[in-house]
Amino acid sequence: RRRVRAILPYTKVPDTDEISFLKGDMFIVHNELEDGWMWVTNLRTDEQGLIVEDLVEEVG
């Protein structure tokens, strides 16, 4: 499975499927959606939700 790491922190918009995260958080990518969004699991918090790919980098 594809893994990505947050390069910046992010605070979710209330009442959306987004998740908040810290710089350095690792995610497993489940689905890549339109307009650069990804459905992921945050490995630190075990939370699932949407993040935008501009805020993460690939992990080898």
Rank of each mutant, 00 (worst) to 15 (best):
1 R>T: 14
27 F>S: 00
1 R>K: 15
13 V>L: 12
33 L>K: 09
56 V>R: 01
8 L>T: 10
4 V>S: 02
33 L>T: 10
46 D>G: 15
8 L>H: 12
2 R>C: 09
14 P>A: 10
39 W>F: 10
31 N>D: 14
54 D>C: 10
31 N>A: 12
5 R>H: 05
10 Y>Q: 04
21 F>I: 04
9 P>K: 08
58 E>R: 09
28 I>E: 14
13 V>W: 09
6 A>N: 00
10 Y>F: 05
41 T>H: 10
26 M>I: 14
12 K>N: 05
38 M>S: 04
29 V>S: 02
3 R>A: 07
26 M>F: 11
15 D>K: 09
59 V>N: 06
7 I>G: 03
10 Y>V: 02
19 I>A: 02
14 P>G: 08
47 E>G: 04
26 M>T: 10
38 M>Y: 08
1 R>F: 15
11 T>C: 10
19 I>D: 00
19 I>V: 08
49 G>R: 00
52 V>A: 15
36 G>R: 09
31 N>R: 10
18 E>K: 04
2 R>N: 06
46 D>T: 13
54 D>H: 12
57 E>P: 00
44 R>Y: 05
13 V>G: 09
19 I>K: 00
56 V>G: 01
59 V>G: 06
60 G>I: 14
12 K>R: 12
19 I>T: 02
10 Y>W: 07
36 G>Y: 04
46 D>S: 15
20 S>E: 04
41 T>S: 07
25 D>R: 01
18 E>Y: 04
5 R>T: 07
30 H>G: 05
19 I>S: 01
57 E>C: 08
37 W>Q: 08
12 K>G: 10
2 R>T: 07
25 D>I: 02
50 L>E: 05
35 D>H: 12
38 M>T: 03
55 L>G: 05
16 T>E: 02
49 G>E: 01
25 D>Y: 02
6 A>E: 00
24 G>H: 07
19 I>Q: 01
3 R>S: 08
35 D>K: 14
49 G>Q: 00
19 I>E: 00
37 W>R: 11
58 E>C: 08
6 A>D: 00
16 T>G: 05
22 L>M: 12
4 V>Y: 07
37 W>F: 09
53 E>F: 14
32 E>H: 09
11 T>E: 09
9 P>V: 06
35 D>L: 11
55 L>R: 09
29 V>N: 00
52 V>P: 14
52 V>R: 15
32 E>G: 07
23 K>F: 08
54 D>E: 12
17 D>A: 13
39 W>P: 00
31 N>Q: 13
41 T>M: 07
36 G>I: 03
36 G>N: 07
37 W>D: 03
20 S>N: 07
33 L>S: 09
16 T>F: 02
59 V>T: 08
16 T>N: 04
38 M>N: 03
33 L>H: 10
21 F>V: 04
49 G>H: 01
28 I>S: 08
55 L>K: 11
31 N>Y: 14
23 K>P: 09
26 M>L: 14
21 F>T: 02
40 V>D: 00
17 D>E: 13
26 M>A: 06
37 W>C: 08
47 E>Q: 11
6 A>F: 02
23 K>M: 11
15 D>F: 13
42 N>F: 02
25 D>C: 03
